[in-house]
Simulated assay, not measured.
Amino acid sequence: MVFYSYGADKYESHNESTNYLLRLLKYGEPTETETEVGLPPHEDMSFITILCQNHVNVLEIKTKDGDWIGLELTPPSSFIVMAGDALTVWSNDRVRACTHRVMMSGKATRYTVGLFSFSSKILHVGNFWNR
């Protein structure tokens, strides 16, 4: 859908070179001596990341102004779709990767299913735009 929305009609080679990684993630409740940072701020290297988590909303997104906002998923069965670094490169900075972190607090364990898509080819800025 991303390729189609940008009018890129030659994306079959990207589809053929895409690999997927499905990860089951568990972040336990922090102990009194542990920090609340479950995962430090980062951008995913993938093309696109799709997350589905349980009722524990601990994902925070960094805004352009440098503020952190927590994501409240309503309904809890919602999916989070985030652009990764590979999409930023492919889109020539038109779509920016999302800086995010996991902040743990409270007395609940967070379970997440993450689907990450990667290209097995080397991507260059404007890789699909200059064909």
Rank of each mutant, 00 (worst) to 15 (best):
M1I: 11
M1N: 06
V2H: 11
F3W: 10
S5H: 03
S5I: 11
Y6L: 15
Y6W: 12
G7L: 04
G7Q: 07
A8V: 12
D9S: 13
D9M: 14
K10P: 09
E12H: 10
E12D: 14
S13W: 13
S13C: 12
N15Q: 14
N15D: 08
S17W: 04
T18G: 01
Y20Q: 12
Y20W: 06
L22W: 02
L24K: 11
L24S: 12
L25I: 09
K26H: 11
K26M: 09
K26L: 10
Y27S: 00
Y27H: 09
Y27C: 00
G28V: 06
E29Q: 09
E29H: 02
P30L: 01
P30W: 03
T31F: 00
T33I: 03
E34F: 07
T35Q: 04
E36M: 04
E36R: 09
V37F: 04
G38H: 05
G38W: 01
G38L: 01
P40N: 00
P41N: 00
H42K: 02
E43D: 07
E43L: 02
M45E: 13
F47E: 02
I48F: 03
I48T: 06
T49G: 08
T49W: 06
I50K: 02
Q53R: 05
Q53L: 03
N54C: 01
N54K: 02
H55Q: 13
H55W: 10
V56Q: 08
V56W: 08
V58Q: 10
E60R: 08
I61R: 00
I61K: 06
K62P: 04
T63G: 08
K64V: 11
K64N: 14
D65A: 14
D65T: 12
D65R: 09
G66E: 06
D67T: 10
I69D: 02
I69C: 07
I69K: 09
I69W: 05
G70H: 09
G70Q: 12
G70K: 12
E72H: 14
L73Q: 11
L73A: 07
L73Y: 07
T74I: 13
T74G: 12
P75W: 04
P76M: 02
P76Y: 08
S77Q: 05
S77R: 03
S77I: 08
S78A: 10
F79I: 03
V81Q: 04
V81N: 02
V81Y: 04
M82A: 00
G84F: 05
G84C: 05
G84Q: 08
A86T: 11
A86G: 05
A86E: 09
V89F: 01
S91H: 01
R94Q: 11
R96K: 15
R96I: 07
A97P: 01
A97Q: 02
H100M: 04
R101T: 08
V102I: 14
M104Y: 07
G106W: 02
G106K: 06
G106I: 03
A108Q: 10
A108L: 05
A108F: 05
T109L: 09
Y111S: 03
Y111N: 10
Y111H: 10
V113R: 01
V113I: 13
G114H: 01
S117G: 05
S117W: 02
F118Q: 05
S120C: 12
K121N: 15
I122D: 15
L123I: 12
L123V: 11
L123H: 09
L123K: 03
L123N: 08
H124G: 13
H124C: 12
N127C: 15
W129K: 14
W129S: 14
N130H: 13
N130Y: 15
N130K: 15
R131Q: 15
